[in-house]
C-alpha cells in the first residue's frame, strides 16, 4: 500500500516536471511513469476494495512465475502461434496474388468484388461452428479461422492498393513498353507494396485477436483456452490476468516483427510521402 502510494506520487511528480527533461529522456521516462502510476492505482484499488478474487499486481507476478514453471504454458503459446502463423501465411499467399489480379483487371473486379465484400463483414467468430464441423476441435479449425480473419483485410487492402496506382506511373510503364507479367513485377506489385504491408499488419493484429476468442470458444489448447481453463479451474483470476498480459506482449512482438518490413528502400516512400 505504502509502496504503491509512493510510486503514484513519484510518477505524478516526474510527469509534472516532464517539460524540463530532454526529448531523449522523455522518450522512456514518460511511458515508464504512466505504467508505474497505473500499476500503483491497480494495487491501491485491490487493497481498498478488499477483493478476494481479483489479483493484485504482485499476485499477477507470482501467477506469471507459476505459469512459466508449469510446463504447459509453452505448449499453449506454441499452439496459438502455430495457428496464427499458418493461417496468416496461407491468407497472405492467396490474398496478395488474388488482390493484385482483382485490383488490376476490371472484369475480375466486377465478378469477384461483390462476393468478397459480402463475405467480409461476417465475423470470423461466427465461422467457429462451421470450422469445428469441417476440421474438428484442434489446429485445423484454428488455422482455418485465422485464414478467414486475415484473408479479407489482406485481399481488400491489396485490391485497393492496386486500384490506387497513379495514372502517371501506369503511363510511364506503358510508354516504355512494360507489359503483362513484367508490368506486375515492375510496377503493380512495387506500387502496391507499402499498402500491402499495412494490410498485412492489420491482418496480423486481427488474427491475434481472433485466435484468443476462437480458443476460448472451440479449442482445447492455446492461450485463449488457458484463460478459460484458469477461470473454470477454481477462479484463478491471477492466471487469467497474467495470461492476458502475455497475450498483449506477444501481440506487440508480432507487430514489431511485421513492421520490420516497412524499412526497406523499396517501400519506404509509401510511408513518408503520404
Amino acid at each position: 500500500m505504502i509502496v504503491s502510494i509512493l510510486a503514484l506520487v513519484a510518477s505524478a511528480a516526474v510527469l509534472f516536471y516532464a517539460k524540463r527533461m530532454s526529448a531523449h529522456v522523455q522518450e522512456w521516462a514518460l511511458p515508464v511513469c504512466v505504467a508505474a502510476g497505473l500499476i500503483a492505482l491497480w494495487d491501491i484499488a485491490c487493497i481498498v476494495s478488499g477483493s478476494e478474487v481479483f489479483p493484485s499486481p504482485l499476485d499477477t507476478v507470482y501467477a506469471f512465475r507459476e505459469l512459466i514453471e508449469s510446463q504447459r504454458l509453452w505448449g499453449d503459446v506454441a499452439a496459438s502461434l502455430f495457428r496464427v502463423t499458418w493461417g496468416f501465411l496461407l491468407a497472405a499467399g492467396i490474398g496478395i496474388p488474388l488482390g493484385l489480379v482483382v485490383g488490376w483487371s476490371t472484369r475480375t473486379f466486377r465478378a469477384l468484388n461483390p462476393i468478397i465484400q459480402g463475405l467480409r463483414p461476417i465475423s470470423p467468430i461466427a465461422w467457429i461452428p462451421i470450422a469445428i464441423l469441417w476440421f474438428g476441435i484442434g489446429d485445423g479449425a484454428g488455422v482455418f479461422l485465422i485464414f478467414l480473419s486475415s484473408f479479407f483485410p489482406i485481399t481488400v487492402g491489396t485490391m485497393a492498393a492496386v486500384r490506387n496506382i497513379s495514372l502517371v506511373h501506369q503511363r510511364s510503364a506503358l510508354n516504355f513498353g512494360v507489359r503483362r507479367f513484367e508490368l506486375f513485377r515492375r510496377v503493380v506489385l512495387p506500387a502496391a507494396l507499402p499498402q500491402i504491408i499495412t494490410s498485412l499488419r492489420i491482418a496480423l493484429g486481427v488474427a491475434w485477436l481472433v485466435i484468443v476468442a476462437a480458443e476460448m470458444v472451440g479449442m482445447d489448447t492455446g492461450l485463449g483456452y488457458l484463460i478459460n481453463d484458469a477461470r473454470n479451474a477454481g477462479s484463478r483470476y491471477d492466471l487469467v490476468v497474467a495470461t492476458m498480459i502475455l497475450i498483449g506482449l506477444i501481440g506487440i512482438l508480432l507487430d514489431f516483427l511485421i513492421r520490420r518490413l516497412e524499412v526497406f528502400d523499396e517501400v519506404r516512400w509509401g510511408y513518408t510521402q503520404r
Binding site: V168, H169, S172, G177, V267, G270
Partner: peptide
C-alpha cells in the same frame, strides 16, 4: 505509346520504389 516517343510528365512519373 512507344518508347521512340517519350513523355516527361507534369507530375513525377519516375518510380519511387
Amino acid at each position: 505509346p512507344s518508347s521512340k516517343r517519350v513523355f516527361v510528365f507534369q507530375e513525377y512519373g519516375i518510380f519511387p520504389w
